[in-house]
């Protein structure tokens, strides 16, 4: 994949997502799960577990991990890697906080589904 220029798009406020929770952003490339950790960090992963496609946005968020609701795979929110004995990687999208506003890399959302 070639590098592209980032274009930050505001998708909501930090407070729109519960602490240790997640919400979905609908995009042309499919659902994106945006997570908020207990320490108010935000992360964004495509809402598909590398195992069987489970919606990660519906899992329990703990530390910088989320546990998939379907078969309890644990996915690291920073880089999407699967923790523990299982293997795999969920893909993410750049996201940042600007004074309580959540911005994601809009350029990553364009184009065909992953």
């Amino acid at each position: 994949m070639t590098k592209h220029d980032m274009s930050w798009v505001e998708i909501g406020q930090l407070t729109d997502i519960p602490k240790q929770g997640s919400r979905v952003v609908r995009t042309p490339r499919g659902d994106l799960a945006v997570f908020r950790s207990i320490d108010d960090e935000v992360f964004a992963l495509w809402d598909r577990c590398p195992h069987k496609g489970g919606p990660l946005s519906q899992g329990i968020v703990h530390g910088r991990n989320v546990t998939c609701p379907l078969h309890n795979w644990v996915i690291n929110l920073e880089d999407g890697t699967v923790q523990g004995p299982d293997e795999g990687c969920a893909r993410g999208v750049a996201v940042r906080l600007e004074g309580g506003r959540i911005l994601i890399d809009g350029a990553a959302l364009a184009g065909n589904a992953a």
């Binding site: 909501g12 997502i17 919400r23 952003v25 609908r26 042309p28 659902d31």
Partner: peptide, 14 residues
């Protein structure tokens, strides 16, 4: 309500 609605919907926006 937050549980059942997307945070943001690009399709609707378009």
């Amino acid at each position: 309500a937050h549980e059942f609605a997307p945070l943001y919907d690009f399709a609707k926006l378009e």
